[in-house]
């Protein structure tokens, strides 16, 4: 169960109240993490741990900072000129915001899948090979492509079309190709920002099944507005909420059973039962 604790994973940073789980090894943690866009605070003082090889859902109303928080985990906010990040994100024993850390390396180890499938206008093969080529890998690419597409549960559907454009297949297949692309560089964490929101129900089921399968080997943090989806695929749920001052905070973090069955915070109860949106 989530609880406040000061027994921190890392020596860096500090957080008086970190949301964490007893006896569960974390793969990533944030300490007093805040993000501002052009001087306007978007999220404030988020301190929590992501358990290894689990699926964690970030839920909350629109504008509460879920995607902002998610983008902090692989320094995607660096790409937004007005964004400033304060606090610590510990991963692999290091604050990923330390000056000596290479954000590109971080993005290989912490991959990302976006709301809308975004394959490159290249062949399916080249889409999946992209990260490996950047890493200088040229041997056994065929095997890597097949393995990655199999892990993304799309190999059988595209194995005879590998040279066709990544844009020529269905939306659901495109999204799984993007997941294969993320998996091809063997990330430890995959971040997903509403990965199924633009897909039909059958494709959504395929993505959900894939997420559950992948969670045996990688950690997945997913932003979703679909609470049924969150209950189906994740082990833990973190609830973000912005008050009148429009600053997002993590108000609750717990197992699915607790957050969706018996939330502690009245605002969580109001959100998951649809009283506030």
């Amino acid at each position: 169960m989530a609880q406040n604790d000061t027994d921190l994973l890392s020596q860096e940073g500090s957080a008086e109240n970190i949301l964490r789980f007893d006896n569960i090894e974390p793969v990533l943690e944030t300490l007093d993490l805040s993000v501002a866009y052009g001087g306007n605070t978007a999220i404030s003082n988020v301190s929590f741990q992501v358990p290894k090889n689990s699926v964690v859902s970030l839920i909350g109303p629109s504008g509460c900072g879920k995607s902002t928080l998610l983008r902090c985990f692989n320094r995607m906010n660096d790409l937004i000129p007005s964004a400033s990040v304060n606090g610590v994100v510990n991963f692999a024993g290091q604050n990923i915001y330390a000056p000596e850390v290479d954000p590109t390396e971080i993005r290989f180890r912490i991959g990302m899948v976006f709301q809308r499938p975004n394959p490159f206008p290249k062949s399916i093969y080249e889409n999946v090979a992209f990260g490996a080529r950047i890493n200088g890998m040229t041997d056994d690419l065929d095997e890597l492509i097949e393995t990655s597409l199999r892990r993304a549960a799309v190999w059988d559907e595209v194995k005879d079309r590998l040279n066709e454009s990544g844009l020529s297949v269905s939306g659901g297949q495109q999204q799984r190709i993007c997941i294969a692309r993320a998996l091809a560089v063997n990330p430890e964490i995959v971040l997903m920002d509403e990965p199924a929101s633009a897909l039909d129900p059958i494709s959504t089921q395929a993505i959900e099944a894939l997420i559950q399968e992948l969670s045996n080997e990688v950690t997945i943090v997913i932003v979703t507005h679909n609470m049924q989806q969150a209950t189906r695929i994740s082990n833990y749920a973190a609830v973000m909420m912005a008050g009148e001052e429009r600053i997002g905070r993590m108000i609750e973090y717990g197992t699915n059973e607790q957050v969706f069955g018996n939330p502690k915070d009245e605002r969580t109860e109001a959100y998951v039962t649809g009283r506030i949106g």
């Binding site: 609470m227 049924q228 209950t231 969706f260 069955g261 018996n262 939330p263 969580t268 109860e269 998951v272 039962t273 649809g274």
Partner: peptide
């Protein structure tokens, strides 16, 4: 309604 939390209980 796919109820949650207090509604489901």
């Amino acid at each position: 309604e796919a109820p949650m939390a207090g509604d489901l209980r």
